[in-house]
């Protein structure tokens, strides 16, 4: 498979995001029913670990990619790369906005109906609102990278 530098970069970002944040959300889901204070600490620790690991993995893999494709890395993006990036960004941004709107809706509902969240939420996870927002962000990133790869493979 003959891939451009930017496509390889998108594959790296997609797999690292899916792997690291997949592990993160899996562990967050396991906090269901855990004592609130303990779960809060665990969630914060998980978030920090995921962010640091994500940065480290991206830096290492992109450094290796740049070192093995230094000419392409220096060249940067051409018009096709920019167009695919722009189109994928549009889709990712739409998902992020939907996630933010849903989070805002949840904050407002819980604010006016404090009992609503406690009695009706099937997920008793501390910082749930923050996790929903984080999930929207990660989902938008995954869709953005997948969108770029989709356009590179299918063409446009």
């Amino acid at each position: 498979m003959d891939m451009s530098f930017k496509e390889k970069s998108a594959w790296i970002s997609l797999f690292s995001t899916l792997g690291i944040f997949g592990y993160y959300f899996y562990n967050i889901a396991l906090l269901h029913g855990a004592p609130a204070e303990l779960a809060k600490e665990a969630a914060l620790e998980l978030l920090l670990k995921a962010i640091i690991l994500s940065v480290v993995v991206e830096v290492i893999f992109h450094s290796v990619l740049s070192a093995t494709n230094y000419k392409a890395a220096e060249f940067g993006s051409d018009e096709r790369d920019k167009m695919y990036e722009y189109k994928a960004n549009n889709i990712g941004y739409t998902i992020l906005v939907i996630g933010v709107m849903l989070t805002l809706g949840r904050i407002i509902i819980v604010e006016y109906n404090p009992d609503f969240a406690d009695h009706n939420s099937s997920m008793q996870i501390p910082l749930l609102t923050a996790h929903i927002l984080m999930f929207s962000f990660i989902l938008s990133e995954v869709v953005r990278f997948a969108g770029q790869i989709f356009y590179y493979r299918r063409g446009y």
């Binding site: 392409a72 051409d78 018009e79 096709r80 790369d81 299918r154 063409g155």
Partner: peptide, 19 residues
Amino acid sequence: IGVTRQTIMAIEKGKYSPS
């Protein structure tokens, strides 16, 4: 022309219409 080799390949295959 200042594009990547993969872009030339995509143009030749008809998978991308250049500007």
